[in-house]
Design a protein around this nucleic acid. Sequence first.
DNA 1: GTCTGGCCTATATCGCGCAA
DNA 2: TTGCGCGATATAGGCCAGAC
Length: 280
Amino acid sequence: MFPRLVTRVVPRFFGPNVSGLRVALSARQLLVARTFLTTAQVSEPAAKRGSTKSKSAKSKTTPKKKAAAKKSTATKKKPAKAGRPKKDDSNDPEARFKNGLKAVKVKKSELPPVKPTTAYSLFLREQYKEIGQTGTFGEKSTEIAARWKQLSEAEKQRYFEQAESLKEAFAKTQEEWYKNTDPRILRAINVKRRAENKPLIHMPTHLRNKRPLSSYMRYMLEVRDSVELDPSLSTKEALNKRAAQIGKMWHELPAQEKQRYTDQYHKELEEYKAAKSEQA
DNA sequence: GTCTGGCCTATATCGCGCAA
DNA sequence: TTGCGCGATATAGGCCAGAC
């Protein structure tokens, strides 16, 4: 699961390419995005919270924790010697991967963008502010869900539009991320996620460098629309019947005709291989 | 950073057949 | 794995405050 706090969202969403995102977003979208980011900034009160927290934390600190704290200060790292570049400052990006993916430390700014807020979530955030401190989380959630149900479609529209804008911006950011991120970073992230038993991150299918369609697949795409689905059958049965029918047509296709599809496949396969070796 | 409760939404996956 | 369709189902992730 991705972290939720915006302190994590901001660098991931805007970090790598702020100007690019500005271009991508219309002024309104940007406003929406900013509202999303700043309102969700739990860290705004966090400074405040941090101070009160540290106060209470201080008084509640157990001896064990105190000892640990002491230890942590005792083992505080000495400042790096002047003139010696830090590991991350290395000009050689390959150095990061020399000890294997497991050893790669992925920076926050390198993590993939988080999914955009949904319409309901936008409403939820707005309502939580309105409700304020009264009631438990559960009570608030129930209340807000009831309010959401009472909204007319027209009233909901505003939230859906906002969510749509965020979704579009996210799609662009995500595409940029996959384009600009070293594939080894993604693998390193997944190595960590696998170890934590978390689901892996996959490049969305529409962004993948897909293998070209096989000769048969290409043929099927061409003729599919000309083979009608049997309306007397269920969707599944009709689709299966059509697939079987197209398979039969392929077998009956003259060799010369088949060759046309095969040639196209081999041509695209070469291009695919070339692109893949370029990526590697 | 994670967890808490309750809810909604978006997305992914599955099954089916076919050939390479 | 690639494409298609599409309903059913599963899952992730979003919001909120604050303790740990």
